[in-house]
Write a protein that binds this DNA or RNA. Structure first.
Lengths: 230, 230
DNA sequence: AAAGCAAAAAGTGCATGCAATTGCCTGTGC
DNA sequence: GCACAGGCAATTGCATGCACTTTTTGCTTT
């Protein structure tokens, strides 16, 4: 390789590219529909086209990019319908995680969830959206891990990343923070009681509400597609 | 490219390789743990190493192969624990599909399911395992499609392929055919009634039973790993 | 001026080559 | 006889080059 690939994490070059490009898609820095030019990406990250190509292939297998033979790759475009199907799936997956968590979390996991959840209440009072988002992510991760099922965990995390670009703006909605916390509270309470049915239902409702909030932004996001690569 | 890559389906070479290698893994022709040598695979399919590498990358992203940097790729080895988690996930996913199917299938989809299901009864009488397996696959596919949720459909199909190597031998168990049919019957009946709760439960139970049957073979499969590539 | 066509430009797909890493094998010291 | 170091063969990882496909551009024709 010619230069140094600074500031990116370790692993093989291909792995780094998968993460680098994947992050930019998930965080919305690369917009759905945006063209992913192999040469430009290679130049941008100072590697040859080969690892870029492999990375695009893997991202395509993950559903983050779309590849038309001989016609290049673009950031995956999701239709309203597919978006809805992903949110619905997400609700079901979270419901499963919550249900299993209520049944299977160890007492230390339960304690951790409760503590973290209470800590996040402070972020709500402060209206610290950025910080709350951190706690929110952590909260859901705990739920996924608490299900003690690696495959469900993987499916859920995967679906969540694909939805990420459409969920980011949700906390801009006024009062969303407090509402989210209350919904989390329902889930936590049910899990602490070991009430799997209630936990599942609360988690499903939680996602459904997020879904509705996000749908607004999904439609709005349709307009701007162009932007410099990476 | 040097020669002709006969009898494989169309698409780019990489796609063909993904399917070719993926099929061999899913059908159990390549066993978990088996080493996937890039050069050998390239020679076997008469292509260069590049498309093989890309294919392995994608299969790795799908979870069908494992890749250790600089140490080559092997067919993904699943632990008993992970296998159990996949079966459990499968049960939940099928339950969701059945539940949604009960609520959403069009009348023509319901009719199709019923007809196909009745047709498969004949295979049971004849003890035609191969043929029944075809109907079985078709039955489940109808369930996944009937959910009218593309993402759940994708997740389910994906999970099902990863489980395929462990499910193949199940119908060898005596009386399994008839039992499977009866379980299908419960699902169909519930769907025809539009009883989503019953459909979900029946589907979950169905997978659980298959899971138990397969677990036996999973452990037995542990011994032989070596076999000629492709 | 619009439509059609052809040639060029751009970009993807694959093959090949070389550097780098790993695992094995041999040889030496204890 | 065993452990470890060094070197060698095998294999992976990446870069580069060329062929083929698609898209664009500029000209011709109506």
């Amino acid at each position: 390789m010619s230069g140094k690939r600074s500031l990116i994490r370790s692993g093989t070059t291909v792995d780094q590219m998968v993460r680098a490009i994947g992050d930019r898609i998930v965080t919305g820095y690369l917009r759905p529909g945006e063209k992913l030019d192999e040469a430009s990406l290679a130049a941008r990250f100072d590697v040859s086209r080969t690892p870029v190509r492999e990375a695009l292939g893997q991202l395509s297998a993950m559903g983050l990019v779309e590849r038309r033979p001989n016609r290049g790759a673009i950031v995956a475009v999701v239709t309203q319908e597919h978006l809805a199907s992903m949110f619905e799936s997400m609700a079901e997956l979270e419901a499963i995680c919550a249900r299993f968590s209520a049944e299977r979390m160890t007492s230390s996991e339960r304690r951790g969830l409760e503590i973290e959840h209470q800590a996040s209440a402070r972020m709500v009072q402060l209206g610290a959206e950025e910080d709350y988002e951190y706690f929110n992510t952590e909260f859901h991760s705990r739920l996924y891990r608490g299900a003690h099922n690696t495959h469900i965990h993987d499916l859920t995390v995967m679906t969540r990343s694909r939805l990420a670009p459409f969920r980011r703006a949700q906390f801009m909605l006024p009062g969303r923070l407090a509402k989210s916390w209350q919904e989390h509270d329902l889930i936590v309470t049910a899990i602490m009681r070991g009430d799997s049915v209630a936990a599942g239902k609360a988690a499903r409702d939680h996602v459904s509400i997020v879904s509705e909030a996000s749908a607004v932004f999904a439609t709005d996001d349709r307009k701007p597609i162009r932007r410099d690569v990476a």
